[in-house]
Design a binder for these strands. Structure first.
Lengths: 129, 129
DNA sequence: CTAATATTAGTAACTATTACTGTTAATTAG
DNA sequence: CTAATTAACAGTAATAGTTACTAATATTAG
């Protein structure tokens, strides 16, 4: 049985307020502004719960720590190799690649995880100036 | 300047001998059979070097530890949600998704990372028996 | 309101990985 | 073939991210 908690609300509210795909540590720092004595363990536990229930997305883009996304809708991301930022991509879904992968494969493809890397609009602009 | 080393050779030889995408720990355990006192730090250092030079691939499929692949050619993987195994997929390249992602994106797409998840042939077979 | 218990803060523990240090061994120069 | 140089090593300590534990607190049900 799941009980409401001020801490979990604050975490979700913060994630909804940003498009920056923060790490657990960043979530912690920001939520501390409204709940100064929140524990880092609480942040981790709630991020795990929220990811489990599908209310948020966990992004593992190869960096040292996972990132979280308050938008649980299926969408894709790009990791900027210049500034490290993770940005949303507005693009069509790629469900068809599951079919490509499944052709000739003896098992079952249930889905995929994908992210792109390159240079974000800001860094691309800066490097051509 | 890069010097030859028996340890690095053994690591590469082991990775070439398997299709199992082992973790650093598994590489360590196996290479210890030929070099019993090899250090875990040496395994990590060489796996990083080999990944850096492009001789092997590092796979970060969301699990707790990275995995390594002795085949440096671009190819895709499937993570079995049943047994945790990571297997190679024989399938066409997906370079076209970079174009899809780049459409309407202000920055530059250089490439993508993708893996599939589902059920490997062995587990699919077992679950339908 | 009271009882039951999910959640918390704070801290300790754990795991994967990297850094450090003195020693060993691969390469280069003579 | 030495000897000098230094990359790489083994062993160990340290770090980073995350999870586990515990007694106290806050939420919900009745």
């Amino acid at each position: 049985m799941i009980k409401h908690s001020r801490q979990r609300d604050a975490i979700l509210t913060y994630l909804h307020s940003t498009k920056s795909h923060p790490t657990a540590e960043t979530v912690y720092e920001n939520v501390r502004e409204s709940i100064p004595n929140i524990s880092l363990g609480t942040v981790y536990r709630n991020l795990n719960m929220l990811a489990e229930t599908g209310d948020i997305l966990r992004l593992s883009c190869g960096g040292t720590s996972d990132r979280y996304d308050g938008n649980p809708e299926q969408h894709y991301h790009i990791l900027c190799r210049e500034c490290g930022r993770v940005s949303d991509l507005e693009m069509a879904g790629l469900e068809h690649i599951n079919v490509i992968a499944g052709a000739g494969f003896g098992g079952t493809i249930e889905g995929h995880f994908a992210y792109f890397y390159g240079c974000c609009p800001e860094c691309t602009k800066n490097s051509t100036e």
